[in-house]
Amino acid sequence: MNALTSFILILVVTGLAFAGGEISSCRVLLDVVLPYAAMAAFLVGLVYRVLKWASSPVPFNIPTTCGQQKSLSWIKSSWIESAHTKLGVAVRMAIEILLFRSLFRNSRAQIRQEGPRLLYSENKWLWLGALAFHWSMLVIVLRHLRFFVEPVPRFILAMDAVDGFFQISAPQLLVTDVVIIVALLFLLQRRLTDPKVRYISLFSDYLALFLLLGIAISGVLMRYFFKVDLEAVKQLAIGLVTFSPIVPASIGALFFVHLTLVSFLLAYLPFSKLVHMGGIFLSPTRNLPNDSRMVRHVNPWNYPVKVHTYQEWEEEFHDKIKAAGLPLERE
């Protein structure tokens, strides 16, 4: 149900963009107003969210330790998984963010009633799918810089060359285009067919997937099948980033779909689970060093509490302490 609703929503947005692109008076809206509004929402929203998280203090030092602590000199400590130095934490975070370390641990548990026996097996598919998607996404976003920057930076061209490694057809088939769609379809398939994941999936989970799929598919269609005028696209893009927007006469209907969905994603991102993009950096179980007995972690709102003092305790149990022959502060 959630999947269907979100699918329909994306279809409706696609349809509106398609129709809007046909009406010349709508083009200003789609080409200029929408991207600006979306970008503003994205930047302001994301900064707001991060500052909102940042405004809550980190009262305790609570890293999840995934390796040996630093203790005795002759015991090898796990300087990354249980980092006690800043460098260790930085490396841990880097591996987490760039390679999805934690997801790499993933396993699958099954139960056999006879025995009973619990079976665990390697399960790296989620890791692979997630990594494939995110890296492709990053490369694709960077590749799009060629529309926004003139002259096109060399590293973009170099990246393009690597991406088009297989030199299949013209325009060259880019590996990331295939990978991102395959990865998204895998993630969607997983959500739909794994009963556990299906059970936990919300409308917004499907929405994000359909939205990204819509963007990827419309982009791929534009690149390989229903060609658009790239010169016009670049003019529009540069016009937007130099704050002197122009509305090219015609680019192609698919372009409006692509641009509208991207704007949707930008505006939606800060207000959805997709903010995990920024959140991962702030995760206290990952970005804190396991040095809480070495260095005192200060809680800014630490407040005095009511305790049962020794004096109160001794008073209450005075006679019993005395009878037991234990020392007393006051006889």
Partner: peptide, 26 residues
């Protein structure tokens, strides 16, 4: 956090800076 945010904003708005500085037009 502030440095990270500024870096992020800088990267996202890089095309604008680049084009404005380079005087790129459409």
């Amino acid at each position: 956090i502030i440095a990270g945010l500024l870096l992020f904003l800088g990267l996202v708005t890089y095309p604008a800076w680049h084009d404005l500085v380079a005087g790129t037009t459409a």
